[in-house]
Amino acid sequence: MTQRGAEPSSSDVDAVYVFAVCGTRTPVGVEGLPGVPGGDAVGTLPFGELTAVVQTVRAADFTEEAWQARLSDRQQLERYARAHHHVVSAAAVAGPVVPLPLATLYHDEQRARSALAAETARFRAALERTADHAEWGVKVYSTGSGGADRPDPPSGPAVITGRPAERTSRPAPGAGLAYLERKRGLRAEREQRQDAAIRAAETVDAEFQKVAAAARRLRSHAPELAGDRRVQVLNATYLVAKDRTDELGRLARTLEESTGAQVELSGPWVPYSFVGEG
């Protein structure tokens, strides 16, 4: 294939998509996977003592414009993200892998080989750091303190929410003041709830850090993303030694009881969040 000079947008130009780098010479179980949409079957590309899991794709599917469109189309993005994850996970069955971010591409195998070979030391360090470990996600949701809570929509001017009886009756003397106090009380309650939720999140994080070899905080999901009305107060992820996996479920339950928050554990993940530096 031509490289460089060729128009990157011409539709017949190929590119090499790299999913992950494996510590072994022969990662089993990845050859022939379908990979990302519109490409050839997944294969391997040895470099030095490591092996990359790669796929030949059409360069035209991976231009910046193509990604702009894809990133604003949830279904499209999901297809690519899941395809990527599927290949990375399959490679990880055979042995430790270093996943690369979605859409790392080279013009051809030669370019891929030399670029990856130049990073051998980083791959080795990452493989070493994550060997015999897996990543576990922990999300904490605030449940409020009492029974009478509802993650009320971020306090809008919610003054006239029904209660026609109350509205139509003549305001009693001092009703304005009572109303203000009620509002103030509600706000104080909400603040207390938020404080409690943040404390719960900190407690959960601290406890999981004791079990983990490394930890990272991720950005919390807005409720509408997860299609879920609960308020997420912690979205963290931990690198945990495989022989400590058993402790996690128990820890999550214990913390639910002691903090009153909901603690959700997910995993094991390929250590996506712990192969980069820092």
Binding site: V18, W67, E78, H85, S89, L100, L105, A115, L116, A226
Partner: peptide
Amino acid sequence: LTGPIGVPLVDLLDRVLATGVVVSGDLV
């Protein structure tokens, strides 16, 4: 470590976008 089925998309995106060892690619 397998099981792309059932993994919520948001959790997946937390991990597959801009994590991993970032090596400069030729495209995107």
